[in-house]
Amino acid sequence: MKNTKNRPENKNHYVERFTKGWAIYIKNPMGKAGLIILLIFMLMAIASFFVPLLGPVYDPMTGADPNITYSTGPSFQHWLGTDFIGRDLFVQLLEGAKVAFIVGLSCAFISVVLGTAIGMISGYAGGIIDTLLMRVADIFMVLPSLVILLILASLWELSIWVIIFIIAIMRWPSVSRIIRSQTLSLKSRPFIEASRVAGASNFRIIFKHIMPNVLPLAFLYMTFRVTSAILVEAALSFLGFGDPGQVSWGMMLQWVWSSGHMFQAPYWLLPPGICISLLTLSFYMLGRAMDEVLDPRLRKEGEGE
């Protein structure tokens, strides 16, 4: 709106953009709900670092209660009950939250950094480089990631970090497609041409002019990548191909299944299932609300600048 033009502002541009975006974000009920759920899971993940300090019984992997040798329901001692060798389920659930965050965020981070870099280079360079990179992206895009992971996991025992890396490698192409098309439309914008006329190098144009314009979009895609990474890891673990040395929600489900408690222990089956759904849902809601911040067309009239 025109009336802002004479208002002196010395606030940092990025701080200002953030506060403006935040104001739109927080008005969205979906964004608010997503953020609250996410905060709860974050608390759980943080708690998982402290609970094992209470005693060896509370180690999610090795801390079996010596008094219990079979799966028990919720009690004062074990809030959610125990598994078939007497490990505390609540402690495992907290540990699972931590793992889900590590898997989701690092996977998303790697794939988005890779996807953004490749997308920007591909879109800006054009020609043969663009064609080559996008064909590679196409190949990765059509690969069935879960099947490949299953094959690899059945051949070798994969640690959680290897799994994270493989999921990330499988997931960059869709990010780079989006970033590439955004870069293509930015490339022909006059402010990029003005910078070229000023004598700026390609490197400077990509990192100084194009990157700040695609970063919000990359960040948005990161939230969606988190969701898919958590789901893939959970599926893999449930099928029994996860990192056997690492408790995760998928692994908990696998233990329910393999120990034959599927229909006997709802206190064991339901919490990890619900957690997986809620956490992925919260990231999804986060993404949708951010989408609204970034895409002014979705915003209601009159709220925008």
């Binding site: 006059p190 402010f191 003005a194 910078s195 000023a198 002019h209 700040p212």
Partner: peptide, 17 residues
């Protein structure tokens, strides 16, 4: 050799001061 572009809304990068 420099240039002044047509549309001042498009020729300035919105993220640069």
């Amino acid at each position: 050799v420099q240039m002044i572009f047509q549309d001042p809304y498009q020729s300035l990068n919105p993220h640069l001061s």
